[in-house]
């Protein structure tokens, strides 16, 4: 697809809901040039491929994790330069087995974001080219931004 085709938020919304009628749910939050949705763990990679190839979302600006104590979330921000839209995808993953497909093969910019999410939350991104610690020393055994991680004084 050409990069210079522009879509409005409604067009993007309808295209996605056509392609993923059950897996993707849109949130009612409305902001100009923003799009909020939640997706299934299994359909995330397909959704990202669809958004990249069909809708021209050519940048992944953010991948991070959220620890809600009973579950974990992975948050993606995808941006389209041509249509000036930033889409937020939130994916719930179970806390005892935090695994999700990597989107690094689609956007190289997600590489270090995913490694940092692994570093801080212990979320394992499958098929990531180098799933190792990025910021912390390699011999750390805990994930510091999880809510059950205890910090203590000397």
């Amino acid at each position: 697809m050409e990069d210079n085709v522009t879509y409005t938020v409604e067009q993007v919304k309808s295209r996605i809901s056509e392609a993923f009628p059950t897996a993707v749910k849109f949130e009612s939050k409305v902001k100009p040039r923003r799009l909020f949705m939640t997706a299934d763990k299994g359909s995330l990679l397909k959704l990202c491929m669809f958004m990249k190839d069909q809708l021209g979302f050519n940048q992944c600006s953010l991948v991070t994790g959220v620890d809600w104590c009973d579950r974990m979330q992975v948050v993606y921000h995808l941006t389209s330069y041509s249509s000036n839209i930033t889409a937020e995808i939130v994916v719930d993953i179970p806390r005892d087995n935090p695994e999700i497909d990597s989107i690094t093969p689609l956007w190289g910019g997600a590489n270090w974001h995913e490694r940092e999410a692994y570093d801080m939350f212990g979320i394992v991104f499958k098929d990531h080219p180098k799933m190792e610690r990025l910021l912390l020393p390699a011999d750390y055994t805990f994930f510091p931004l999880r809510k059950d991680c205890k910090t203590g004084g000397p």
Binding site: L136, P137, F142, P144, C149, T151, G153
Partner: peptide, 13 residues
């Protein structure tokens, strides 16, 4: 002494 990070997981005290 570590200052504001007196109980941090990655700062030498």
């Amino acid at each position: 002494s570590g200052g504001p990070w007196y109980d941090a997981y990655n700062v030498v005290q």
